[in-house]
């Protein structure tokens, strides 16, 4: 009696076809693994990487940094009373609304949340961070500290270290540019502000560039 034997190529073809059938039958995996665990978020909170200093933000506003996107998470009524230049209003109640996904989940702009203190801004930051969105930050100290540090800076003692005086000069300059109450610089010579480094976007989520021809 003649037995039918599978040749290696027939076996391979059958195997590949079966794998193809399986993959055609199962639904596409749409769960995105890009979510942070609670531990990862805690690590980020502990290291404080979400904060940007008011001086950095002031510098960016003065320089009209095109990638800066200030996001006011306070209610509309408060936003209308006072807001930072160029800020948009996303009240924290609406932070998950579909219309804001494009604003919050992108890799071009540097989003900076602010509220009166930092609680609401931090809540907003934690929510979007949990969703895996990048390039979202929190204004350190919120508007209260902003008013204190940038709009009405306090002159340091004349015995203070140079960098403190330089920071004061910078704050005075920013204060004048941003409509605060500051008037006179600490010294008569031109303000020697040290350039404040721009925030470095960390870990952009973008597709790998490449290809082969």
């Amino acid at each position: 009696m003649k037995t039918f034997e599978f040749s290696p190529r027939l076996l391979t073809t059958a195997l590949i076809l079966m794998l193809g059938l399986i993959i055609a039958a199962v639904p596409r995996n749409t769960t995105t693994p890009f979510k942070l665990t609670a531990e990862q978020i805690l690590d980020e909170i502990k290291s404080g990487t979400q904060y940007l200093e008011p001086e950095q933000i002031a510098q960016m506003i003065v320089e009209k940094e095109p990638t800066l996107q200030l996001i006011d998470v306070r209610p509309v009524t408060e936003f209308e009373k006072f807001s930072l230049p160029g800020a948009i209003n996303i009240p924290i109640d609406n932070i998950l609304a579909a219309e804001f996904v494009d604003v919050l989940n992108q890799d071009i702009m540097t989003n900076v949340f602010y509220s009166n203190g930092t609680t609401q801004a931090n809540e907003a930051w934690m929510l979007v961070r949990q969703l895996g969105y990048e390039n979202n930050y929190v204004l350190r100290g919120g508007l209260n500290y902003w008013a204190e540090a940038i709009l009405n800076p306090e002159r340091p003692a004349s015995t203070s270290p140079d960098d403190e005086l330089a920071r004061y000069d910078f704050r005075m300059g920013a204060s004048q540019a941003l409509g605060g109450g500051g008037l006179a610089p600490s010294e008569s010579k031109p303000a020697t502000t040290t350039p404040i480094p721009k925030p470095k976007p960390q870990g952009k989520k973008k597709a790998v560039a490449g290809g082969c021809s």
Partner: peptide, 16 residues
């Protein structure tokens, strides 16, 4: 596709 099914790779991040 199998890697995606097992959650080993996020296909939406693959450069095309």
């Amino acid at each position: 596709l199998f890697f995606s099914l097992f959650g080993w790779v996020d296909l939406s991040l693959i450069y095309v």
